[in-house]
Write a protein that binds this DNA or RNA. Structure first.
Lengths: 235, 235
DNA sequence: TATAAGTTTGCGGACCACGCAAAGTTTTGG
DNA sequence: CCAAAACTTTGCGTGGTCCGCAAACTTATA
């Protein structure tokens, strides 16, 4: 019916066998159908069977790809955010790691653009679902894991034995999560990208808003080069 | 049979009606039974019915308290970590917020002591379960939420409208999670408390291990007063 | 002590995850 | 081009989960 699925899919379909391509397409179609149906009717009113039917496969097949409808929905988040690691690896080598990571995240968010109001309205409904919030956290854990690998690669450390990459990725992922929830709850006073950027720099600077009167070693001087350092934003 | 359940339960049963006390006791008994059975037989070999039977209630009653066995198990983590916020509020008022928070966490972990090897062995088995890891993340989210409230209270900010408390709580909770997983995977080379402390200070100092050659504003001077600042540890 | 408020439980229904084996599709290598 | 190998899809069956409902029971209120 529609091919909106691939809007953001910068050909991942290179050098894959027919089988693998079919598999990828089916997986994405199921994810997309799950999200669409859940946004329309509310997650609790969507059965696995419905999602499968929408794509034209059996319910059993759905379960060969995902082990729950929640997982199918959150797979989209994972796919989307996987790019942050790639962006990080492409940042100039002389950027400090915090700056580079933050810029990679901001780059990613300005790249995907602002969601429509309608999308946000439905999305808000969606995340009010308990089971889904849990699965979102799981998805975010996966994003974090991948980011940690990219950080390790860039810093020449090891994502399994060193704590550094995991700590940075965890802090960043957590800040993204906080920023997005905050943004969702506070009626879009400013663009999402701004919100994420603000949260990340606040964190990188050691939470100056919390260290008002007490001196803290962390407030020394802010990571100022994060702010205006790429040009694709209006004002 | 045993009353190990309340080993760490510093009387939460104050000023509660009989009904409420009964409810609490039942809840904790179910949690504890769930954890014990899962550690013994493996989570997939434990049915809700088994847990209920262990406590002497119907399976239906189990579901009045928890909506899954995973949730029952993770409720213990939530209960345990809820104390971190209390510790934070009791820290001296002149400690900077990062320091105070880290000290609160370290205090908590030195307070609960090192787990036995046997416990760790079983626990490791337990977290290899996919579904349970998801629920753990959910539980950690709850812990984070509560910590954020305590941070807001201490700093005179607002946990719903300000980002600061959420960001700090998120970063700390994430570091705790990373430290624990790392510790579980690396065969207890040092005590868990040490591991958590190390991760937190590393993070608070801006990840110096990752900013080796590039200058970063965050490496200014370390938050040194975190290290040896309470006395209940050997060595 | 009567009435209200809350809890436990069996029952039943909708749904879900997954093992298995039969039928279908793609790949591989003669 | 064909046949065997590798993999995917599907129906079916099983064991299990979650939850609404209403009846029995327990605790609270006045």
């Amino acid at each position: 019916m529609s091919s909106e699925v691939d809007d953001l899919t910068i050909d991942e379909h290179a050098g894959l066998s027919l089988r693998e391509r079919k598999r990828l397409v089916a997986r994405e179609a199921l994810s997309a159908a799950a999200l669409r149906l859940a946004m329309d009717k509310g997650l609790e009113n969507v059965r696995v069977e419905d999602i499968a039917a929408e794509v034209g496969v059996s319910a059993r097949t759905f379960n060969n790809y995902f082990s729950s409808k929640e997982e199918a929905i959150c797979a989209i988040t994972i796919r989307r955010n996987a790019r942050i690691g790639d962006f990080l690896l492409k940042r100039p080598a002389d950027e400090p790691i915090w700056t580079a990571t933050i810029n990679a995240v901001v780059e990613h968010y300005s790249d995907i653009g602002e969601p429509t109001r309608e999308f946000v309205r439905r999305f808000r409904m969606l995340v009010s679902n308990e089971a889904l919030r849990g699965e979102f956290l799981k998805a975010h854990g996966e994003v974090e894991r991948r980011l940690a690998i990219a950080v390790a690669q860039r810093t020449g450390t090891d994502a399994t034995s060193d704590l550094g990459p995991l700590l940075l990725a965890g802090a960043i992922a957590s800040a993204i999560r906080v920023a997005m929830i905050h943004w969702l709850h506070h009626d879009l006073v400013k663009p999402m990208g701004e919100c994420v950027r603000a949260a990340l720099t606040e964190l990188a600077d050691g939470l100056p808003s919390l260290t008002a009167r007490n001196q803290s070693s962390l407030e020394a001087k802010p990571v100022s080069d994060v702010h205006r350092n790429h040009d694709d934003e209006d004002e």
